[in-house]
Amino acid sequence: MTGALEVRGLSAGVDGKEILDGLDLVVSFGEVHALMGPNGSGKSTLCHVLTGKAGYRVSGQASLEGEDLLALEVDQRSRLGLLQSFQYPTEVRGVSLRDFMIEAAEERGLSEGEALSRIETEAARFDMTRFLDRSLNNDLSGGEKKRSEIFQIAVLRPRMALLDEIDSGLDIDAVKQVARAVEEMRAPDLGVLMITHYNRILRYVTPDRIHVMIDGRIVDSGGAELAEELEAGGYKAIRERLGLIETSSEPARRPADFFTDTPFDVK
């Protein structure tokens, strides 16, 4: 079986710090996977390394539909169909969301007319119309930035979407809306990896598989029962069951903190 995304023995570090430690992960087409893990375990780093952000020492393998991702430039990976929604989207003054999306759609072979109509449709769907002519992500609230990310992904139609905490900072209606969008994205030729800290989005999206990441590795994978175990006992329970020693410098969080419906963005 060729996965949409296949990651084998992926390690990555920055300035002497090891973040990813021989990570293995396969997300097949047609599937939605959830990735959970404590703060600092390396979830965002995984996304950045896969999309090709500069500055990491990388070893191991990663491919999309058999294409070696690590050999490609950032924009080539994107045009191949790999798209990330960012946990902390970058603000770019002077560049409007609309112009940006037109250029990005044109790079994917769409005509300007097709691009414009897709932009209009998706903007209406994600309530982004009034942000189209404003500077990219500039002066947007946390939740609006997340909506902008999912909007961009909807316009550009990936084959593999890495959604990094797309549900953090969203109000309850927006969580439902984003969850619905993820479910609607499901397609035989599309894979989704959804990073989240909250069970609440899993009420509306049913992942085919849940992975738990600790200290730069996937330590366990399973179904809905894994999320329930986390909800009940936090990462401490998982560590204990798997005999993992706590090495993270992050203080352990009480489960009660962890699964409240009050979103928190740590960092």
């Binding site: 950032v74 960012f86 770019v92 961009q152």
Partner: peptide, 20 residues
């Protein structure tokens, strides 16, 4: 990086940023 991650070539991303 942000612009390129949406598929813009380096040259195109630079041009968009200069305009902006």
């Amino acid at each position: 990086y942000y612009l390129r991650s949406r598929g813009l070539t380096l040259e195109r991303a630079e041009r968009l940023l200069i305009r902006g």
